[in-house]
Amino acid sequence: MKKHSVLKKVYMAVIILFLYAPILTLMVLSFNEGRTMGKWTGFSLHWYEDMFADEDIMDALKNTVIIALVSAVVSTVIGTLFCLALPRLNSKMRSVFLALNNIPLLNADIVTGLSLMLMFVAFGITLSMGTVILAHITFCIPYVVLSVRPKVRQLGMTHYEAALDLGATPWVAFFKVVLPELRSGIFSGFLMAFTMSVDDFIVTHFTRGAGINTLSTMIYGQVRIGIRPTVYALSTIVFVVVFILLIASNVISGKSATVKARRKAES
């Protein structure tokens, strides 16, 4: 009883410690005064100052944001359209398309990256930021589908049909009735795609043109020439941003459900 509950807590604490200790170490070191890895010499924010002054880092940050925004927007549109089309297919075609959608999720990043690069080169497409964006759209779509599809299934066809029945054109029915119901799923899909794009190193590494760096490829490059604590500061910021986005996406997709549940409970 009591002994067990203590054991449970210790077990949880150990798991969480192992999961987050490395990131905590990194965060702590990013505030370290000196540049040695293992020794705490005092609190300082000067690595953060250095980071914001570093043109390479700011350039990579800008690229990362542009790539993530464009690929998240495009993959959200494509993924949502895909989800809307699925119920219209017969069950056989539907499972074929869903399987096709899941393969990029399971495929090793290195294979995806390498094959995309080969294809771009084979078709004579110069590697640039554009090719990175195309590549990111490719691997982001499945995440959008994963997050939008449950909403589409939950909604079903009746709301759409009800709107048509009341005289709405298919267009009006979609924008006034269907889209508002899918909003939370679409938004969390967008955030998911954005996060995946920011996070990616391997695919970016293979598909980027000369001189194009995102945060992850730049950090990797710096690691090879000798790591500087500015990278710790940068990594800390990347982690915090991704962490916030993930929480936001969870809160948003969970919110509509809990609001409904609460309203039900109140009535």
Binding site: T158, H159, E161, A162, A163, D165, L166, G167, A168, V172, K176, V177, P180, E181, K260
Partner: peptide
């Protein structure tokens, strides 16, 4: 007009907005 089995009211609208839907369209 149809009354659907699962009512199919639009959850993003109030009761009044639901009723007004067809009239607004026309």
């Amino acid at each position: 007009n149809t009354v659907f089995q699962k009512y199919a009211l639009f959850p993003n609208m109030t009761i009044a907005e639901n009723i007004a839907f067809g009239l607004r369209i026309s």
